[in-house]
């Protein structure tokens, strides 16, 4: 279980991105964190894999405090927590297969035949068996994101962090990606943390959701409950039930 405890992030410029955020993400869950731009949700997810260090507070994973990990320990922790990005984050000069193999290179310094076979299997898993030798520029946005998902799966992660993973995609691709994430969650039990500004995404795949406003948690609970009876003005606005004058 990922447990975020009293996370505060203050950037060098003095900007408070997060204020005392505490969230428990149960294992096997698809957990949504929703908020408008600037709410601090990207900062929060980046604190989970420590691309960003919290100014205060702790990140506890399966009882272990990972907040201050560094070097080899940090790298091996990051292999347990895969991430997919809004902009896909693929290497443009590498083929789809080479991109999926990158985590093997990162952890072992080399890519074995077995790794390559596994990567091909993952590409097939995301429906891109025939695109192994294509470069990202030859793929559509949805296909690129599926390559990124295959890469995320390479290290058999326990957690997948999705930072606005469908925000750059059209509705059809968005649906494909969300379905894929849901299948992965069901088949492997991988916990998925979904950062989004779209209530639609939360409604489609999340079980629990946290609403973040100006770096603070304003509402938290099972998706049905939040949707049925939103308390906060921003939640209502996100649901189209209120105005944005908050």
């Amino acid at each position: 279980m990922i447990s975020l405890q009293h996370i505060t992030k203050i950037y060098d410029g003095g900007e408070h991105a997060l204020r005392d955020v505490s969230i428990d993400i149960p294992d096997g869950d698809i957990f949504g964190i929703i908020g408008i731009s600037g709410a601090g949700k990207s900062t929060l997810v980046r604190c989970v894999n420590l691309l960003e260090r919290p100014t205060e507070g702790r990140v506890i994973v399966d009882g272990q405090d990972v907040t201050n990990l560094s070097g080899a320990e940090l790298r091996s922790y990051r292999r347990r927590v895969a991430m997919i990005f809004q902009g896909f984050g693929l290497l443009a000069q590498k083929t789809a297969l080479e991109n999926v193999c990158f985590p093997f290179l990162a952890s072992n310094g080399k890519v074995t035949e077995a790794d390559r076979a596994k990567a091909k299997g993952l590409l097939a898993r995301v429906g891109l068996a025939d695109k192994a030798s294509s470069y990202p520029s030859q793929l559509s946005g949805g296909q690129q994101q599926r390559v990124a998902i295959a890469r995320a799966l390479a290290c058999d992660p326990e957690y997948i962090l999705c930072d606005e993973a469908t925000s750059a995609l059209d509705p059809a691709s968005t649906q494909q990606i969300l379905d894929l994430l849901q299948q992965i969650n069901q088949e492997t039990g991988t916990t998925i943390l979904v950062i989004t500004h779209s209530m639609e995404v939360v409604e489609r795949i999340c079980k629990n959701v946290t609403v973040l406003v100006k770096g603070k948690v304003v509402e938290q609970g099972p998706v049905e409950q939040i949707f049925a009876d939103p308390q906060n003005e921003t939640t209502k606005a996100l649901l189209g039930k209120g105005s944005w004058n908050v």
């Binding site: 894999n49 691309l51 940090l74 790298r75 091996s76 922790y77 990051r78 292999r79 927590v81 895969a82 991430m83 990005f85 809004q86 902009g87 896909f88 984050g89 693929l90 290497l91 443009a92 000069q93 590498k94 990158f102 985590p103 290179l105 990162a106 952890s107 310094g109 990124a148 890469r151 290290c155």
Partner: peptide, 29 residues
Amino acid sequence: PRDSIEAAEACGASVPRIVWSALLPEALP
């Protein structure tokens, strides 16, 4: 692009690995 480098970092790659296997090949052209 920063995204590609962060993705490499998020994969658990060390800095020398990122430089050698991601940054320099991406910047080669």
